[in-house]
């Protein structure tokens, strides 16, 4: 089977064509074309098997400010809104420095939420 994707790894936005087969309900990518770099292949495979996204958002501090955060690595795409719900309830103490862990292993994804700004 064939699938057309837009690579989101970098701003180039390569138009990818992915060929894959489904064996026993499992997706198996056989060929990726249109990619400008190797990361495009990794992206195409992940996107067809188990799509992931990095979330960038904010959390509120106990002083009622907001500070920017991100998932330190991409998390499963379908968990995005659930992660947002968890982060809506988080309150962190100031000061916060870039890289500080805000939530460890969010929703059991193995990914930490870290601060991306100082406050």
């Amino acid at each position: 089977m064939k699938r057309e994707l837009t690579c989101i790894v970098c701003p180039r936005g390569c138009a990818l064509t992915v060929e894959y087969e489904v064996v026993d309900g499992k997706v198996n990518v056989t060929q990726v074309s249109g990619n400008g770099c190797k990361r495009g292949i990794t992206y195409a495979e992940a996107e067809c098997v188990a799509p992931v996204r990095t979330i960038t958002t904010t959390v509120r501090t106990t002083a009622d400010h907001v500070v920017a955060v991100k998932t330190a690595a991409p998390i499963p795409k379908e968990k995005m809104m659930e992660v947002m719900e968890v982060l809506a309830r988080v309150r962190v103490e100031e000061p916060v420095r870039i890289g500080d862990t805000i939530v460890e292993d969010i929703l059991g994804t193995g990914v930490n939420v870290v601060a991306t700004a100082n406050i």
Binding site: L5, T6, C7, I8, V9, C10, P11, R12, G13, A15, R53, K77, M80
Partner: peptide
């Protein structure tokens, strides 16, 4: 806008 933003900001 960038194509990837259409993908990850709208299509997603």
């Amino acid at each position: 806008g960038l194509i990837r933003n259409i993908e990850q900001c709208l299509n997603d």
